[in-house]
Design a protein around this nucleic acid. Structure first.
Lengths: 116, 116
DNA sequence: ATTAGATTTCGGTGTAAAACGAAATGAGAA
DNA sequence: TTCTCATTTCGTTTTACACCGAAATCTAAT
């Protein structure tokens, strides 16, 4: 992998909202509307963030009926990406923002959330 | 450290020229004009890159007569920054670009380089 | 098939960042 | 002090990106 691509890996991690998404996904898989609810962003914005993280290799997606679940790419074959994923819990501690995010994803119900 | 500041750490690493600077500094300390010669950028541009890396904590500076030497912040007290620095050799291999950069810094003479 | 709802893609806007040259700063040499 | 030269700061331009709402897509249920 060339150095430009390595820079892109770090660029994917350079946005606070994307880091919050990764921290949430380390708790459990989530659909777009659940992440949207927690971050208070437009759905389209969250979708863009997810596609950036997916393109970099940090997350993968899984179709689940009308929903799309996103999850951490735990079995990533790229050693750099894999090692960064394994370091994230150590690097990014649960500050106020992250703690609140995790509280929220433990209390949302995607069926109540999205159907309105 | 809040999650916004963690994002800024990764933003500092999200530019290929800054990654090249870090890889060069892992060989030896360098002044601005040496880095400028290798990267083929304007001196002011290199100076800005260095100040971004310095603000993030990855490098430190040392006055040396009319020169300013920049070097890796090897004794960084921040555990996240320290761990990232220690991982850099593993993450960023010596691709063509990096190998050429290192060849160049081993052959430049700052006295011949700057005085013109 | 048609509808409803979750997600993605598509323009558009405002802000951040990378690049440059020129001017300002700072430190040694004359 | 005055000059030289390495570096930083400033003003500007161009490019990239985060964000939004609207339109398009895709899936499941009616």
């Amino acid at each position: 992998m060339q150095i430009e691509e390595k820079a892109k890996l770090f660029k994917a991690l350079s946005d606070p909202n994307r880091l919050r998404i990764l921290k949430m996904l380390q708790v459990r898989k989530l659909c777009v509307c659940e992440i949207t609810e927690v971050l208070s962003l437009a759905t389209s914005t969250v979708s863009e963030h997810l596609s950036i993280l997916k393109r970099a290799g940090f997350i993968i997606e899984e179709k689940d009926g009308k929903w799309v679940n996103y999850m951490i790419n735990s079995n990533c074959c790229d050693t750099t990406v894999a090692s960064i994923i394994s370091m994230l819990p150590f690097w990014i501690s649960n500050d106020n923002t992250v703690s609140c995010d995790i509280d929220k994803i433990n209390s949302v119900d995607r069926n109540k959330l999205c159907c309105r």
